[in-house]
Write a protein that binds this DNA or RNA. Structure first.
Lengths: 335, 335
DNA sequence: TTGTAAGCGTTATCAT
DNA sequence: ATGATAACGCTTACAA
């Protein structure tokens, strides 16, 4: 910068003002400086700027893992908002590693804010991070001063009611580990609550597996082999539902005739497979974007958002047993 | 830091030396400083350090998108190496956005090095980035001073030969867009070359689709509906192969009896589906790790790595028509 | 072994 | 409107 200032015969202050478009500079001065900047290809040092402004200009997202379309959509939504304010995005996938807590703390020193996905850190670890840097919980419970952005998971209860009452299915199974993440906890609870509300006997224990497609395939092995196959399987997300579907088809079973399947998310694949997947639509992209906005602006102060719950909606297609006229995708696809 | 120095009754230099474990400090002094650091929970400012050391302490990965297990594995490999040296990882998915070039340039100002995935930037844009920050191309061609880390894509030719000669299939189709990325370009070329080597007529034009599972489902619609269905489909990666498999099963077709399918990557799902997927195993994690190592150490100077090609191997399972005794997964699963 | 002080590249507050 | 100059928080010769 000093170079530029010397060459353009001005002070560094002026160069700074021109380069960031702040303060008052006369047109001719601005022009002169701009030309030199252009000619020498000068770009202000991010380090110098960071130190002076006391902000890194970047934000972070922390996940347990990155597999599947859910995370990439989340990142996409988050990233687009971050880009809009010129912040770059750090990403850390802990994979439940041992040193994860320490790594998150280290990362906290390098960013202006952090979004932590539910199921990644213990409450305690999260609190420690939150006292160093602004934090928003993504798909988790809000806590102390840490706001949360999440989707309404109770809609999976409507789906369950639909299977139980509209279709009259009994013996429903749930695939997903309620202890794995707040999302799954809530979905399992809603699933149970729907059974109570319908006054049918309580479901059996959930099949505690991960949320990847491969877990769905494994679930197929567990659930579809034996004689007492469940009539319908409610999966904690679309990926496992898709894996289960593949496993069912690969075994020559018919869906939904032999077994009905439902998911959660409404990822693109859900409406492409045969039969199309009945699921709950969750605005994943919006979830990411909202989180970013909260992190960048807002946060803290009286009247700040403490908990943002985004609406979800059931999407009834064929995999639950509904027959569809297949007109418009949006409406009219209910039984 | 000055606070700590004052409280511990030492100079800032000593605090610095203690906190970074460099230089000579007497045990008692170190002890004293350490206690104060501990007590006040002092953590050195990354900004101050960055400015003084003239390095950001972070590296970046740039991708066209993030969907699928391929990218998450890549990131995992890269991240583990980066963590090892205390560097954090920026991630940018361009999604072929318009302003992508500019965003990459901006990101270049914030990192010590950048890994750019093939198919993300034009040669020209890449060159512009490379003159600002060290760059390694991931899964692309090396260029000028930019080294590349990639896998051996020609092995897909062996697979093609296997289909053509061992199984005697004709009418093979290729799914993937050779213009989309260097990886697919090379795979398509190897596919064609295998046809020439086997002295059979040249294959028809590739079905130019993306690399996601949903693209495979779309491919199923294109390829499996008509009368002149291909006898075997060589997919540019496992995700599309899996999508194609789902599409085939959903249509009541039998794989490999009606149509054989092969992929590339050997993702976990490949060995879980029914029939198991014949594919080419690529060390994705290693690819990421090698890239990170190259970026962090090495790079530049005489004798530096310019092109690292990692070995791949064919994995013959049932989806190509091989019958397996299903003994050990590793060996003995060839025809 | 320890301390002093000069950077590192900006921004921002004052004067002018 | 422009220019000095003091931060910002750390590292690292160089001195003591």
């Amino acid at each position: 910068m000093r170079e530029i200032a010397k060459i353009a015969q001005v002070s560094v202050a002026t160069v700074s003002r021109v380069s960031r478009g702040t303060g008052q500079v006369s047109p001719e001065m601005r022009e002169r400086v701009l030309r030199v900047i252009e000619e020498y290809g000068y770009r202000p040092s991010q380090m110098g700027r960071a130190l002076a402004e006391q902000k890194h200009g970047s934000v972070a997202m922390v996940f347990p893992g990155l597999a599947g379309p859910y995370f990439s959509e989340l990142i996409q939504g988050f990233e687009s908002e971050a880009m809009a304010v010129g912040a770059s995005v750090h990403i850390l996938a802990t994979h439940h590693r041992a040193g994860a807590g320490e790594q998150v703390l280290t990362m906290a020193e390098r960013v202006d804010g952090m979004a932590v996905h539910g199921g990644t850190l213990s409450d305690d670890a999260l609190r420690r991070v939150a006292e160093r840097v602004p934090v928003v919980t993504l798909a988790g419970r809000s806590m102390d001063g840490v706001p949360a952005v999440r989707a309404d998971n109770t809609t999976i209860g409507e789906l369950t009611r639909h299977l139980l009452l509209d279709h009259g299915y009994r013996r429903l199974a749930f695939v997903g580990n309620p202890d794995g993440s707040p999302d799954v906890t809530e979905r399992w609870e809603a699933f149970k609550a729907a059974h109570r509300a319908a006054k049918v006997s309580a479901p059996r224990e959930p099949l505690r597996l991960g949320l990847q497609q491969s877990d769905g395939v494994i679930a197929a092995g567990e659930l579809l082999e034996g004689r007492r196959r469940p009539r319908a399987v409610v999966c904690a997300n679309d990926e496992t539902a898709l894996g289960l579907l593949i496993g069912a088809l690969g075994r020559g079973l018919s869906v939904p005739a032999d077994v009905a399947i439902t998911g959660f998310d409404d990822v693109p694949m859900a409406s492409l497979v045969q039969p199309r997947l009945t699921t709950v639509r969750q605005p994943i992209r919006e979830l990411g974007a909202t989180t970013a906005r909260l992190l960048i602006s807002g946060l803290g102060g009286p009247g700040a958002v403490m908990d943002a719950v985004l609406a979800t909606e059931p999407v009834l297609r064929e995999s639950c047993g509904c027959t569809t006229t297949r007109r418009s995708e949006s409406k009219g696809e209910r039984t």
